[in-house]
Design a protein around this nucleic acid. Sequence first.
DNA 1: TGCCAGGGTCTTT
DNA 2: AAAGACCATGGC
Length: 291
Amino acid sequence: MIMRVDGPFDFGVMYDFMERQDDCLYRTWDKKVRRAESFDGRRVLFEVSEAAEPDALEVEILYDEGAGERVVREYVADWFDLDYDLERFYEFARMDKRFEGVTREYYGFRMLAYVNITDVLVWSIIGQQINMKFAFELKRRLVAHFDHFIEYEGEKYWIMPRAGELLTLSVEDMREMQISRRKAEYILNCAEGVENGSLSKEYLQSFGSYSKAKAHLTGVRGIGPWSANVVLMRTIKFRHAVPVGDAGLRNAFKITDRLDKKPDSRYMEDIISGWGRFGAYATLYMWRVLG
DNA sequence: TGCCAGGGTCTTT
DNA sequence: AAAGACCATGGC
């Protein structure tokens, strides 16, 4: 089926980005992306690829236990952030020379969201202060510990375990995966929150304002300003959210502003506060400066 | 080889 | 309030 996007969208740009992510929850191959998901226990495997027409994508369901097309369409729209008014961001970006090159080179690039709250919480903890390659490996070990996958054409398509399943793990189990003791505690703490509802996607979405939701998140042990913003930006989709202090963002500023060294937090706060509701996308495009 | 990685908590000044 | 210690390990 074809999904048309209201505004700029370039699947090729998205694919190049996804290919470099090494996220165990989807597979990129031959300019196609495949992913397995479970919707209320009904598992689906689907494939996303470039559509013949511009600003659109092609979705094909390869295996379905009864979830249906509609849920998959909603999922894909959420995943690729298709409802965002990207043109409005480009209007904003035209006023700032920092975005001149990247908005041209990556025209049609949208945020790759984390649809699953457990996924984003785990990732925002595992990703703290370690190199990305290793972080992706740790996530892979955690996911693969649970036997949730769809096998198709000889490949396994992994599905994120539910929070309740993560709770069956001990800190020692995760230490064996080389996840640090602290992070293992954080992961269990967050999984508990998802289970009891205090960190459920619905509850976080119910916060009217970005700052209130952020305050709630940072009150949780293991979630600091960076992790809170990752969750709010990539799952709850508060467009003001910026992972302040992010190492990549600092490096990007060093490049765009031609600084001798990475800027301090005050320097960045000044600029970020001016981004307002374009903060999340400004961050995404700043990251692209890093290549 | 040592510093840096898409940080956060806890403790100490 | 601000700074330092510690976590853990791979990548370059």
